[in-house]
Computed example of a mutant assay.
Amino acid sequence: MTARPALEIAVTSPAGARAARENGADRVELCTALELGGVTPSAALVEAVAAEGLPVQVLVRCRPGDFVHDADEVALMVAEVRSVIASGAAGVVVGALTADGALDTGAVARLAEAARTADRPVDVTLHRAIDQSADPVAAAALLPSLGLTRVLTSGGAPAAAEGLAAITAMVAAAPGVEVMAGGGVRLADIPALAAAGVAAVHLSAKVRAPRRPGSVWVPLGAGGASAEQDTHFVTDPGVVAAARRALDATD
């Protein structure tokens, strides 16, 4: 009998990790700037989220934008891998591509090697850089030789439900690597994703934080965001609980 997929929730705070834990998540992925696709959180934030009790997979991404990283950026992320593991991360979420859209196996190997220097087992996940690669299934086939634990993917599609065929192919192409479906996942998508044979389902379960009444808003950054858009995301406990119920129903 196939094991029920795990539930991973993307969070940005201890409160988000608490909401995930209290509503049935198996683990969390931690980042900051979720509205930019996520970047590496501080050591103090990793410590605070790890104290909430769930295993914490920490995104190591030194900047927003593409996944083609130069030598300085790779060196920085190697140092960040070591830092977040020392701060209590159960795993790291990493990735890099070459300019022609292939998996940058040299950079990924360096990041994975940095994680393996810990004095305890550490998960290493390839993040959604794979979805911007020229051939996500071919990239997934390289992961066993790199010693990665899992891969987070939408199958190269804008949303995981649209990439089911590629996700199924990744499961076959990367034996021993956990394929985790993520990216635009809706609650209604969970049964089909589970049927595709994924090891886990990843949701952000996010909602925009409400603006406080009476607060004054002045634009501080580029892009012309409105007062409603210029905010941060928080974890919706109801979405986490509903996702847990949907996964439990796939048993």
Rank of each mutant, 00 (worst) to 15 (best):
R244D: 03
P41A: 02
R120F: 10
W217F: 14
D123K: 15
V185N: 13
A205N: 11
A194S: 02
A249F: 03
V28L: 07
L148S: 01
G223S: 06
P219V: 07
A243P: 13
A44Y: 08
A172F: 11
A79P: 06
R63D: 02
A209E: 04
A205C: 15
D72P: 09
M170A: 05
D66Q: 00
G38A: 03
D131F: 05
H127C: 00
A169I: 13
V124Y: 06
G38E: 08
T168E: 14
R27L: 07
R63M: 09
A115R: 06
A196R: 07
H127S: 07
G37D: 02
E52W: 10
T2I: 01
D248P: 00
A33M: 01
L36W: 09
E47D: 12
A161L: 15
A25S: 06
A205R: 12
R208A: 11
E162D: 15
P5W: 01
T125R: 01
H69V: 08
A174C: 08
T117A: 15
A96D: 10
A161E: 14
P64L: 10
A172T: 05
L187D: 06
P55F: 01
I85H: 08
A188I: 10
D119E: 14
G16T: 10
G24H: 12
P14L: 03
A51Y: 09
V198Q: 04
L203E: 13
G88C: 06
L152A: 07
L97D: 05
A79S: 14
V185R: 03
R128P: 01
A194R: 02
P55R: 09
A15W: 13
I9N: 10
G182H: 08
D70E: 11
E228L: 01
L111W: 06
I190E: 07
A196W: 11
E22G: 11
E80Q: 15
V179A: 07
A6F: 05
A25D: 12
I9T: 02
R18K: 14
A109P: 04
R18V: 15
L34Q: 01
I9G: 02
V28N: 03
A112L: 03
